[in-house]
Design a protein around this nucleic acid. Structure first.
Lengths: 190, 190, 190, 190
DNA sequence: TATGAATGAGCGTTCATTCAT
DNA sequence: TATGAATGAACGCTCATTCAT
């Protein structure tokens, strides 16, 4: 099938990812530069691009993995029976997504709104979000006059909006969770 | 106030804006370069940066003005009596906002979610959008169980989401208008 | 003859000088910018250039005044009877001249090596240095086979050299005073 | 050591230097602009700064090389037997150093009095000057009561002083060579 | 696969000085 | 005298990406 990946290849790739993660945890996502990653990994710049089509692909990978970890927590919870509970369930995930302006922008760009042909790791988590939410909405005490998937997509639209406002110095109030509660009660309980 | 702006200052500023607009209408937003603007305006580069903190500030101004012009059209329409009519009313505005990836990104960045302390012209149009929609929603045959401003903000969340998906090569279908209709019927008629 | 200077003129000039000195004592010579000086003085930029042909002229004035103050101390001392004593006498002056790379460069540029037609305050202190040294050399126990003025000019050449090396990270050793002693003993006692 | 420089690197570097030299010989040192150098060399601007930390570093290199060429001529001469002969020997070198205000300033700045940590090419020629002069002074009929290296450093101090005065509109007389003769006779024959 | 020099194209900066009012 | 907007002319930088070896 795809490729019989060799040991050295995988090792280099792993080294690059590990180096990037090390730099990110030290200096934050926005400060990750290819230059530093390859220096840390002890390989040449060109090697980076032999493993990843571009820098974004690596960021997509790393951030997507982290988002997936967060979604594992979300998926493990019992289906919520109220809007408040629903929000409670997803807040840790939302907090990760919005913990940092750079990450937020990156995630939005890869959320399905990307120019890319392929669905990357982040885009896949957005599908996964929809799936999880759809299941919850289909089985829980929420409005039934609308396709649960549409409802789920709406939740996404609302929390993206809330996160965007969260980054606006003038719109910090009310806090994200309160604002989201207002929206989702109107959206899910109509 | 800040400064009693003098005639020459205003003239130079106007020349810069006019030059930028001329270049934009000839080559598009993304192709506007500071170098060309000052050449066209016949002023020194230093003058540009005496008037605008950076290139983005001028883009904000010009795009914001254009959005305002579009909103003038929107505001002039009679309050819509159906969701379809509402969407019909705002489509020209949405089409401008999403006519171009560069512009869309710019607008999102300045929509209030910017890192800037000050509300710029684009951010102001986002407030104006809410005001117009709020009026419509308050007077039209839409759900009354929710604060009209919250409804208006929800519309914004939905159309931003739709526009973002519009730029995604994989999510081009269904077209923006259809998708938006689905969302807004569920949101406004509940 | 020159000009019947008016009160306001003098006041503005004094304000500018005082502002510059304030800024210099707060941030150092190198950090003095015309912009800040006029802001501090509460006048417009153009006013500065109505009082001083250029920024350098003000620096020349201020630094020259300080050098003159130092030379007053030097001139007050009894004529030295040894090279060591001579150096001892002039060290405070040399320390001022070399306390700062910017000042040193400025002084060298105005020391008579300037492109200017007029002798400014700094250049005048160089003449004064020569005069003081010449008197000392003519009356003290120093070589008599060479015109005392030439000896004095030589001293200047040597201490400029010593100061220059003082600013060189690699030539910091031996310290200025020791190096100068070596030179001057060879120069003055031959 | 630092890097095993590759052929292409060296070729590009050589191209940049050659281009700069071409421009300098056509328009003079002061007229050398980075923009023109890279255009002439057919490389990108970024490449320039990958090879030289700044424009000054390239000037240092080129001027230093020229000074070295001049010193080759000086070193090739037979040790002088008189002060006049000594001055005769070094005049071509001094003429190069002082042929141009821009170059003179540059050389002084790099003569070892620079803020830089590293000795650049120009600073190295200053060391070489001392070596050549020291040899001459040790073997020729010059005063023996002073370390020849100290004598050599003194010569440097004197000719720098003479060159500086040469650039002073008021101190053009007597000409550099005469003035230097006065100093050096007193310095070397005591 | 790996290398790393080269690319690119424009941005923002600098700030003493000028000049029309 | 005073004003302050405008000037100028190049510098240094950015840094993900490409490509010949």
């Amino acid at each position: 099938m795809s490729k019989p990946l060799q040991k050295r290849t995988l090792a280099t790739r792993a080294k690059l990812i590990a180096s990037a993660e090390k730099i990110i945890s030290a200096k934050g996502y926005a400060a990750m530069r290819v230059e530093d990653v390859v220096a840390q990994a002890g390989v040449a710049k060109g090697t980076f691009f032999a493993h990843f089509p571009d820098k974004d692909a690596l960021m997509d990978l790393i951030v997507g993995a982290e988002m997936d970890k967060q979604l594992d927590q979300v998926a493990a919870k019992a289906p919520p029976q109220t809007v408040d509970e629903l929000i409670e369930h997803i807040m840790p995930f939302l907090n990760f997504v919005s913990h940092d302006r750079y990450t937020f922008d990156l995630i939005i760009r890869h959320s399905g709104a990307g120019a890319k042909e392929e669905f990357g790791p982040i885009a896949l988590t957005f599908e996964r979000q929809i799936k999880i939410l759809t299941t919850w909405l289909a089985t829980g005490p929420f409005r039934k006059d609308v396709d649960p998937q549409v409802l789920a997509e709406g939740i996404q639209a609302f929390y993206v909006q809330c996160m965007a406002m969260h980054f606006c110095s003038i719109n910090k109030e009310p806090p994200m969770q309160i604002r989201l509660t207002t929206y989702l009660k109107a959206w899910l309980l109509a």
